[in-house]
Each structure stands twice: as structure tokens, then as C-alpha cells.
């Protein structure tokens, strides 16, 4: 049975070592008990596609507590990717408010938002995650260029992140030399290297075969458990349901279950 246990073992083993790495987890991050880490209040978003006006999201509200592994699911065009972009600070709502770890994203300017993202969010996409001209470790180092860390530290953290995802042996490989699953793992390593509060993944397994998909999902779950990272993932993959804590369903821009999503705890 496919269970990605190899990967999980690596992550766990990592944590068991003396002198924990720089990935600290969210515990004690200062989020008040009972307050959701991510709050979405009456958020709407429309955009133009050609001549049509698409209502991607219509007054959606929800809350996600810290440390949860959440899946956003729904048919094509349901607005799940749009919602994800808003949570990650990649986009702004047309109305409503997004608050993450106490920060109102609408208060931030473009540059501030970029800086906030660099510090607080790790991103994993379905395709094109990695720059083909850079090796795995160089790709993982990328977000660290935005910090003031000296070169040696950057390299060390990148290597650590790659070890956590089980790719210590491939750090100098270029994306073209890695399988689809391995590329996604590198992307995940990059997503965690800055020790963000939130990891956001848009269809991370969409392009992978069954084995790699399970490995990736397992890895995400381990990161969620072991490092207490909040993970929000958009996915079509039915397999995902058994890895996550909560499933939020969207349909045509609104929550499908109408009202509070299943499994949410206040």
C-alpha cells in the first residue's frame, strides 16, 4: 500500500535530532487562543475574462485555526484558487477583509504585501514552481535572498529544508533532472525554508502520478504535524481528504455547505 512512509520517517527523524533546525513550528507564535489564525470576512472578488465578468467569490466568510491542514475543494470555476490567492496575499478582494495572524492584509501596500508574503507564507504551485536554470538548493535559497542572512547561512538553511523533504542527495540537480514528485518536494522545501506561518498549496499533486502524489501529501501532513505549520491546499484529488483535518467546499463562488464549513471549530 502506498503510504509515503519513507518521507514521513525522514521528517520525523529530522526532528528527533539534537539541536533542532530553524523550523520552529507555530507553537507560541502569539496567536490568541480561540482566535482563528486566518479570518476571511465577507470577501468578494470579480474579474474580467475576455468580455465576461466572472464573480469568482461572493461574500465568503470563514475562519481557519492555527495548525490546521485544510483542503479547499470544489468543481472547476468554483473560486477555490481565487480564495487561496487572497489568503496568501497574492491578490486583493474587491470587498471584504482578509486577516492573517492578526494582520489586515488590506492595510498593506503592494511592497508591504510582498514583504509580508516573503516572511509569512510559503507557496507551492501545480506547475512551473522551480526556475529551470537553478539547481534544487539554489531554488530553495531564492526566498532567502530577500533576507539579510549571510550566504553561508542561506546555504545551510536551504540544505536543511531539502533534507527535511528527503532530497539531501539531490541538492545540486536541476529541475530537468528531477521527477515530477521530486520537483514538488523541492518546491515544498522552498516553501518552508523561511519558516513561514502559513503554507499555501495550489493543486500540488495535480500533475503527479499516484505514488508521488501520496508522497507529497504525506510530506505536507508531516510538516503540518511536526512543525505545526498551518497548511491550506486547493485540490481536486479525492485522496487528499484522508490527509487533511478539514475540507472546505466551494461552488460557484460561495461555500457549498452554506454557513460554517464542516469540521470547523471555533
Amino acid at each position: 500500500m502506498l503510504d509515503g512512509s519513507g518521507v514521513a520517517a525522514t521528517a520525523g527523524a529530522y526532528l528527533a535530532r539534537p539541536g533542532r533546525c530553524h523550523l520552529q513550528g507555530n507553537a507560541g507564535r502569539g496567536t490568541a487562543v480561540g482566535v482563528p489564525m486566518i479570518e476571511v470576512r465577507e470577501v468578494s472578488r470579480l474579474y474580467h475574462r475576455g468580455v465576461d465578468l466572472v464573480h469568482a467569490l461572493e461574500r465568503v466568510s470563514l475562519g481557519i485555526p492555527a495548525g490546521r491542514f485544510v483542503a479547499l475543494m470544489g468543481p472547476s470555476g468554483s473560486g477555490k484558487s481565487t480564495l487561496l490567492n487572497l489568503l496568501a496575499g497574492l491578490d486583493r478582494p474587491d470587498s471584504g477583509e482578509v486577516v492573517v495572524a492578526g494582520t489586515r492584509l488590506s492595510r498593506l501596500s503592494e511592497d508591504e504585501l510582498a514583504a509580508w508574503r516573503a516572511r509569512h507564507v510559503g507557496l507551492v504551485f501545480q506547475f512551473f514552481n522551480l526556475l529551470p536554470v537553478l539547481s534544487a538548493v539554489e531554488n530553495v535559497e531564492l526566498p532567502l535572498l530577500l533576507t539579510k542572512l549571510p550566504r553561508a547561512d542561506r546555504r545551510r538553511r536551504a540544505e536543511t529544508a531539502l533534507s527535511v523533504v528527503g532530497l539531501a542527495a539531490r541538492i545540486h540537480h536541476r529541475p530537468a533532472q528531477l521527477s515530477g514528485g521530486e520537483q514538488q518536494r523541492v518546491a515544498i522545501a522552498r516553501a518552508i525554508v523561511t519558516d513561514p506561518d502559513l503554507i499555501v498549496a495550489d493543486e500540488p499533486t495535480g500533475d503527479l502520478d499516484a505514488k508521488s502524489a501520496v508522497e507529497v501529501l504525506t510530506l505536507l501532513r508531516e510538516l503540518n504535524r511536526a512543525f505545526e505549520k498551518t497548511v491550506v491546499m486547493v485540490t481536486h484529488d479525492p485522496r487528499a481528504e484522508r490527509f487533511v483535518d478539514t475540507v472546505i467546499r466551494l461552488d460557484k463562488g460561495v461555500l457549498a455547505n452554506g454557513g460554517a464549513p464542516a469540521g470547523q471549530s471555533a
Binding site: A88, D111, A114, W116, R117, A118, L123, F125, L131, L146
Partner: peptide, 13 residues
């Protein structure tokens, strides 16, 4: 463009 998008999403201004 995809790479530029990724870089921007990572926070590069």
C-alpha cells in the same frame, strides 16, 4: 513570465 510570477509570489519586488 511564469518564473517572474513565482519570484513575485515569493516576495521579490
Amino acid at each position: 513570465i511564469p518564473e517572474i510570477a513565482i519570484l513575485k509570489s515569493l516576495g521579490f519586488g
